[in-house]
C-alpha cells in the first residue's frame, strides 16, 4: 500500500483520563489533523485537541430572524393585505395576535437551523467512514476512547506516528486505509 491510500492511524485508550492526556500529548507534539472518538463528549477534550468552538449559534440566529420575518410577512399579507378581514373587533393586522405564531415560526426555523446545521457541519449522514475499518472501533460507542491522526497531517509518518501513539499508551494502534 502506498501512502496515498492511507487514511490515518487510530489508537485505542481505555479511559476518559487517558484519552485526555493522550490528546494533550499529540497536539503538543505538533500533530494538527487529529480527532478523538468517544462514547460521550469528554469534558475539555476540545481544548486538548485544539478544536475551535462551533459556529452553529450564528446559523441558528439567522434562521430565527428569518422565521420572525416570514411569519410577520405572512400574517400581514394574508390577513391585512391580500384578503382583508375584520373580525372580533380587531384591526386586520393586529400585532398582539401575531405574537404567538411569530414565536412558533421563530422556534421552528431555529430548530431546523440547529439540527440541520449540525448535520451539515458534521457532514452527516454518511454511509461509510474509513475509521470503521479499525478492528476495535465498535467500542467507541461503548466503553473505549480512540485517537486518530490523519494521513494528511504534515507531521504524519506511518511508522513514526504509530510508534508515537504506542509510546503514549495507545493500544491496538492500526493504520486505517481510505
Amino acid at each position: 500500500m502506498t501512502n496515498n491510500t492511507k487514511w490515518g492511524v487510530v489508537a485505542e485508550f481505555d479511559s476518559a483520563a487517558s484519552i485526555y492526556h493522550a490528546a494533550e500529548k499529540v497536539t503538543h507534539h505538533g500533530y494538527t489533523r487529529v480527532d478523538a472518538h468517544t462514547p460521550f463528549p469528554v469534558h475539555g477534550l476540545d481544548r486538548a485537541l485544539r478544536q475551535g468552538p462551533s459556529p452553529l449559534g450564528w446559523i441558528v440566529v439567522c434562521c430565527g430572524a428569518t422565521g420572525i420575518c416570514l411569519a410577520q410577512l405572512m400574517m400581514w399579507w394574508m390577513n391585512g393585505h391580500d384578503y382583508v378581514f375584520w373580525v372580533s373587533g380587531k384591526t386586520p393586522y393586529a400585532w398582539p395576535s401575531t405574537i404567538p405564531i411569530t414565536f412558533e415560526c421563530m422556534v421552528l426555523l431555529s430548530g431546523f437551523g440547529a439540527v440541520f446545521g449540525m448535520f451539515g457541519l458534521n457532514r452527516l449522514p454518511r454511509l461509510h467512514h474509513p475509521i470503521f475499518r479499525h478492528s476495535t472501533i465498535w467500542r467507541a460507542t461503548d466503553d473505549r476512547f480512540f485517537l486518530s491522526i490523519e494521513a494528511t497531517d504534515p507531521k504524519f509518518d506511518s511508522r513514526e506516528t504509530v510508534r508515537f501513539l504506542e509510546s503514549i499508551g495507545g493500544k491496538h494502534v492500526e493504520i486505517v486505509e481510505e
Partner: peptide
C-alpha cells in the same frame, strides 16, 4: 396584556 386586549 394580550388576554385583556383580546377579550376587550
Amino acid at each position: 396584556y394580550m388576554l385583556i386586549w383580546y377579550a376587550n
